[in-house]
Design a protein around this nucleic acid. Structure first.
Lengths: 100, 100
DNA sequence: TGTATATATGAATTGTTGTTCATATATTTG
DNA sequence: CAAATATATGAACAACAATTCATATATACA
């Protein structure tokens, strides 16, 4: 293994935290299929609008999603090439584990 | 994207949580080079023994690491083929981001 | 310009998680 | 078997994070 700075390891753990919440992982999963408005996300996931907005702000601040306004709706999409890769790597693990 | 059950998405977020803590990611990083005793981990990471033990228990319960006793020392090693893959995928993201 | 709709945000609350400290358990060795 | 060493664990505390609720901001449209 390479020599990785304490700072980088900290950032790495911070990065994984974004995937470590059910609400956010569900939002991420949804956006893997394409952009979606806040209200559509809330409806699809059966969550309050405020919950979705709060979590989207966290993801947006981290540049994991990006907003595009169209009228009064704001469409969010994934803004990072690596998100799908990370998601799928983790998913492969879960599914593999399920099989035993 | 596939249809992934709510349950699986929950497990996925729980799985990523293990990587979402500085202490744990540092332990994982260390163990990527091979097995190591609890005291050696604590010394190397400059952490209290108790802190390391507590976090190792979390990783052990999740079957991410496994212990092997040798005398009074207990050596921990990674017990999951996917850990390195996940770690490196995340790391690639961080390093890529650093470059801009 | 007033009303409705879409989203964001702040404050309070609640739940969760990590660390600390003290102590327990297990193993080796004198 | 007592003392020393290695690790584990429980309880208390502190820090943090997610949700809720109320409200603010922004846009569209009559």
């Amino acid at each position: 293994m390479q020599n990785i700075s304490l700072d980088t390891l900290f950032e790495l753990s911070e990065f994984f935290k974004f995937f470590g919440d059910t609400t956010r992982i569900r939002v991420i999963h949804l956006l893997l299929s394409g952009e979606m408005s806040v209200s559509a996300i809330a409806e699809k996931l059966n969550l309050e609008q405020s919950v979705v907005s709060h979590q989207l702000r966290i993801l947006r601040t981290a540049n994991l999603v990006k907003p595009t306004r169209d009228g009064r709706k704001i469409y969010y999409s994934l803004d990072d090439e690596h998100i799908g890769e990370i998601f799928n790597t983790g998913l492969a693990h879960i599914l593999h584990k399920k099989k035993g």
